[in-house]
Amino acid sequence: MTGRIVIADDHPLMRAAVRASVEKVWPDSEIVEVADAASARREAEAGNVELLSLDLHMTDSAGLQTLLDLRRDFPAMPIVIVSASEEPRVRRSAKELGASAFIPKTASLPVMREALAAVREGDIWFPDDGTGAEVEETAPDDDVARLARLTPAQRRILALVAQGLLNKQIAHEMQISEATVKAHMTAIFRRLGVVNRTQAVLIAKQLDIAAPPAAEH
Rank of each mutant, 00 (worst) to 15 (best):
residue 12 P to F: 06
residue 53 S to Q: 00
residue 25 V to H: 06
residue 122 G to A: 15
residue 117 A to F: 02
residue 14 M to Y: 09
residue 67 L to N: 11
residue 85 S to K: 01
residue 32 V to T: 07
residue 44 A to R: 05
residue 41 R to Y: 06
residue 9 D to I: 08
residue 204 A to V: 05
residue 26 W to V: 03
residue 2 T to R: 13
residue 43 E to P: 00
residue 141 D to C: 04
residue 159 A to K: 02
residue 54 L to T: 05
residue 119 V to R: 05
residue 155 R to P: 07
residue 39 S to D: 01
residue 113 R to V: 15
residue 43 E to H: 02
residue 105 K to I: 12
residue 206 Q to K: 15
residue 29 S to C: 10
residue 61 S to I: 03
residue 213 P to M: 10
residue 14 M to W: 08
residue 166 L to F: 11
residue 204 A to H: 06
residue 189 F to Q: 01
residue 152 P to F: 07
residue 116 L to R: 07
residue 172 H to L: 08
residue 165 L to Q: 13
residue 138 T to Y: 12
residue 3 G to T: 13
residue 79 I to L: 05
residue 93 S to Q: 11
residue 134 E to G: 12
residue 19 R to E: 15
residue 201 V to F: 11
residue 107 A to H: 12
residue 32 V to K: 08
residue 51 L to V: 00
residue 131 T to I: 03
residue 215 A to S: 14
residue 179 A to D: 10
residue 91 R to K: 12
residue 109 L to G: 11
residue 212 P to R: 14
residue 175 Q to M: 06
residue 126 F to V: 06
residue 190 R to M: 05
residue 117 A to Q: 09
residue 81 I to Q: 10
residue 26 W to P: 05
residue 56 L to S: 03
residue 73 D to K: 14
residue 178 E to I: 14
residue 149 R to M: 02
residue 138 T to L: 10
residue 130 G to K: 10
residue 120 R to Q: 15
residue 103 I to W: 07
residue 171 A to V: 08
residue 217 H to M: 13
residue 62 A to C: 12
residue 135 V to A: 15
residue 216 E to C: 03
residue 101 A to D: 08
residue 41 R to D: 08
residue 94 A to C: 13
residue 145 A to V: 01
residue 41 R to F: 06
residue 58 M to D: 03
residue 207 L to E: 02
residue 169 Q to M: 06
residue 113 R to T: 15
residue 216 E to Q: 07
residue 158 L to R: 06
residue 42 R to Y: 00
residue 164 G to H: 13
residue 105 K to W: 02
residue 46 A to M: 03
residue 146 R to T: 01
residue 88 P to E: 13
residue 182 K to W: 05
residue 49 V to K: 05
residue 86 E to G: 07
residue 155 R to C: 03
residue 145 A to T: 03
residue 195 V to K: 11
residue 191 R to V: 09
residue 35 A to L: 01
residue 5 I to L: 10
residue 83 S to Q: 09
residue 34 V to C: 04
residue 61 S to G: 10
residue 54 L to G: 02
residue 183 A to I: 07
residue 177 S to D: 14
residue 185 M to D: 06
residue 17 A to D: 10
residue 189 F to R: 04
residue 95 K to R: 14
residue 214 A to F: 02
residue 71 R to K: 15
residue 1 M to C: 11
residue 32 V to I: 13
residue 113 R to S: 14
residue 84 A to P: 09
residue 142 D to M: 07
residue 5 I to F: 05
residue 182 K to D: 09
residue 10 D to L: 05
residue 76 A to F: 05
residue 1 M to A: 14
residue 176 I to Y: 14
residue 11 H to F: 13
residue 4 R to D: 06
residue 160 L to R: 08
residue 73 D to I: 15
residue 104 P to K: 15
residue 78 P to N: 03
residue 162 A to L: 02
residue 128 D to L: 02
residue 146 R to P: 01
residue 199 Q to N: 13
residue 4 R to H: 12
residue 137 E to G: 04
